[in-house]
Every structure is written in C-alpha cells, then in structure tokens.
Amino acid sequence: MTVLLEGKSVLVTGASAGIGRAVAIGAARQGADVAINYHGDDAGADSAVAEIEALGRRAIAVKGDVAEPETATAFVAAAVAAFGRVDAFVNNAGICPFHAFLDMPVATFERTMRVNLHGAYFMVQAAANRMVEQGNGGVIVAVSSISALVGGENQTHYTPTKAGVHSLMQSTAIALGRHGIRCNSVLPGTILTDINKDDLADETKRRAMEARVPLGRLGQPDDLVGPVVFLLSDLARYVTGAALLVDGGMFVNLQ
C-alpha cells in the first residue's frame, strides 16, 4: 500500500489530545516520524507517542507553552536532534475559553491571543527557518477554523486569532514560496474536542448545532486527518496559500 508521508519528519503542536493528536497519529500511519508539542497533559502525550511507536515510527513529545517564543525554537531543535530534519509542520495548538464580550477579562483576551496567534507566528517562523536552512523545501499547515469566516457571540477573542492564522498562511505562502515551502490552512467546523465539550454539554444546543450541518453530525478529530495529510503530501505539491473548509457543509448552509 502506498503511504503518503514515507520517511518524512512531521511536527505537530497541541498534539496530546483532539485534532493535534489525531493528525500526529494519522501522519505516522502514512509513514512519518512525528514530534509532538504539548502544554500540560503528560499522560496524553505519552500515550500518543506510544501509539505512534506501535505503528513502527519514531516519536518524541516536547513539553512547552506555545505562548512563549522560545518554546518554538526548542521544539524545532528537539525534532532535528531526534530525526535530523523538519519536513512538515502542523500548527494546531489553540484555546477557546468561551466568554461574553462586554466583560471580557483582559487576561483571558491576552492569553488567547498569545497562544493562538503569537504562538502560531513563532512556531511557523521557527519551522520555516529550519526548512530554509535545509534547502529542499517543506510544508506548513495551520489549523484555523470556520470562525475565521463567521462570528461567535462568546468568541470575540477567539475568532480574530483564527482569522489571523488563516491570513498568516496566505502571507507566508508568498514569503516562503521561493524556498519551495508550501503554506496552507484547514478550517474545521464544529469538532468535538476538549475545547467545546462544556459548551456542547447542553443537549439542546448540541442538537441545534448538528441540525445546521448538511452531513447531519458534528465533526470528530479524525475527520481532519485526511485533509491535513493531503496538504502535507506531494498530492498537493501545487497547492499553497489555500484554505480548506472541513465542516460537513456548515458554512454554506444558510437555512
């Protein structure tokens, strides 16, 4: 069977759970060695590494807060030490502490910005610098959100960060194209992860959200694996600066 990422070194942030974990394990299934970044879930990171290694691939977990710029350089350095190179990078780490707009705590706003947008910027920059140094291109995929395109009442701090991540991929596609580095984003719809589990614990709200999706269900982290792997692979060798909605059709449903 053909594997799409055979022999590649793939880095994924926020990969101890949710979308990041699914993508990391999915990349390993496609032949990649995988370095994962995580913030606090030691058990989740350890089990993700174990699952990747059980697939016959190499894996490391590097703990660090993406809000701190030095975490990016440390993560990339650890991956290079383990695997010798960085072929592909997936920026996934993000938070969404739901809160009303009018009394948004400054600390909540600033933390969301630092993790989601500042963290993406410095992580992408560190990975790109390594790829440029290696001299044979690379691939960067950022996990943005449908929230880059539409609003959310209790997400006024979150939606600007996801629009920023989408915009970052468009601009880096231009800045890095001359180095053979492709940059794209995926825009998930409502995916069942730890970020929204409390918000969707309300059964009425969850059913209403499901009713908005033409495919009839909310997403699972594994639903992002195929789209991300495609963008990381040579199947997408002429795709850069693009954004791929992965939302079950929610965005286009006006009813």
Rank of each mutant, 00 (worst) to 15 (best):
V3D: 01
A142H: 12
A45K: 04
P188Q: 12
D87H: 12
A128K: 03
A175S: 12
T159M: 05
T172C: 02
R217L: 07
A173Q: 08
T156Y: 00
Q255P: 06
A32V: 05
A242F: 07
P227G: 03
A208Y: 04
A81F: 02
V66I: 15
T73M: 04
T73E: 14
T190F: 04
D41F: 01
S233H: 13
G20N: 10
A81I: 09
G26V: 02
D234T: 13
A88L: 11
R111I: 07
G31S: 08
F101I: 12
H157Y: 07
E68A: 01
G7S: 15
L11C: 06
V141N: 02
A43N: 00
L5W: 01
I181M: 12
A32S: 08
S147Y: 07
G64S: 06
L176E: 11
A242Y: 08
A28K: 10
K63E: 13
A77Q: 14
D46E: 15
A72M: 07
E53K: 14
R206N: 03
D247K: 10
M209I: 00
G138R: 04
D41C: 01
V10W: 07
L192P: 00
V49Q: 03
T161D: 03
Y38E: 02
A242L: 05
R182S: 12
G180A: 05
I146T: 08
A72T: 03
A82G: 10
C96T: 10
V143C: 06
L215K: 02
E53Q: 14
P227V: 12
A74F: 10
A35C: 10
Q155N: 04
L102N: 03
A28T: 10
A236W: 14
T2H: 08
D46T: 11
K197M: 14
N253V: 05
D234N: 14
G135S: 11
Y38R: 01
F98G: 00
S171H: 08
L168A: 03
M131N: 13
N196G: 07
G56Q: 10
R206G: 02
E68M: 04
S147G: 15
V139M: 03
Y158K: 02
A28R: 04
V90G: 06
S171V: 15
G137I: 09
G219M: 05
T13P: 00
L254I: 09
G119K: 06
A107D: 15
D202H: 09
I140A: 03
C183A: 15
G44A: 10
L245S: 02
G137S: 13
N253Y: 11
R207I: 01
I25C: 02
G138Y: 13
R207L: 08
A211R: 14
S171C: 08
A120M: 13
